[in-house]
Amino acid sequence: MFDPATTALLRAVLDEVCEGVSRFETGARTHVASRILEAAAKGDTAPESLKQVGREALHDAPTISR
C-alpha cells in the first residue's frame, strides 16, 4: 500500500500518460496502470521515470481498435 502522496503521484502519472486514451479502453489503461504500479512497488517513484514506464507500457498496450 502506498502513502497518499505517492498514490496521488501515481494517479497523476497515469492520467498524463493516458491523456489521449479513451476511458472506454480499459484494457490499455489497466495495462499502463499495472506497469506503473510495478515500478513504484520496486521503489521507482521519480515522476519522469514513472512517465517513461507508462509511455512504454502504452506503446505495448492492448487497444480496442488498431
Rank of each mutant, 00 (worst) to 15 (best):
E16W: 04
E16I: 07
E16V: 08
V17Q: 01
V17S: 05
V17T: 02
C18R: 05
C18A: 13
C18K: 02
E19P: 12
E19N: 11
E19M: 05
E19G: 09
G20E: 03
V21I: 12
V21Q: 06
V21D: 08
V21E: 11
V21T: 07
S22V: 00
R23W: 00
R23I: 01
R23M: 00
F24D: 14
F24R: 04
T26A: 10
T26M: 08
T26K: 14
T26V: 11
G27C: 05
G27D: 13
G27E: 14
G27F: 02
A28N: 14
A28G: 08
A28Y: 10
A28S: 13
R29T: 13
R29I: 12
H31C: 13
H31V: 04
V32G: 06
V32K: 02
V32S: 06
A33M: 06
S34I: 02
R35L: 03
R35G: 04
R35I: 01
R35N: 08
I36Y: 10
I36F: 07
L37I: 13
L37V: 14
L37K: 11
L37T: 14
L37N: 15
L37W: 03
L37C: 02
E38R: 15
E38D: 12
A39V: 07
A39R: 07
A40E: 04
A41G: 07
A41K: 12
A41V: 11
A41R: 15
A41E: 13
K42M: 11
K42C: 09
K42G: 07
G43T: 10
G43R: 15
G43Y: 11
G43E: 12
G43M: 11
G43L: 12
D44H: 13
D44I: 11
D44F: 11
D44P: 00
T45H: 12
T45Q: 14
T45F: 03
T45V: 15
T45L: 12
A46H: 13
A46L: 11
A46F: 07
P47V: 14
P47H: 10
P47L: 10
P47W: 08
E48F: 05
E48L: 10
E48H: 09
E48S: 13
S49P: 00
S49H: 15
L50S: 08
K51R: 15
K51P: 07
K51D: 01
K51W: 02
Q52G: 04
Q52Y: 00
V53R: 05
V53C: 01
G54Y: 01
G54I: 04
G54V: 06
G54W: 05
R55E: 03
R55L: 09
R55Q: 07
R55S: 00
R55C: 00
R55H: 09
R55W: 04
E56C: 00
E56F: 01
E56R: 03
L58C: 05
L58G: 00
L58D: 02
L58Y: 10
H59N: 05
H59F: 07
H59D: 09
H59M: 06
H59K: 08
D60C: 03
D60T: 07
A61L: 07
P62Y: 13
P62S: 08
P62A: 05
T63K: 04
T63G: 04
T63V: 10
T63Y: 09
I64N: 03
I64H: 06
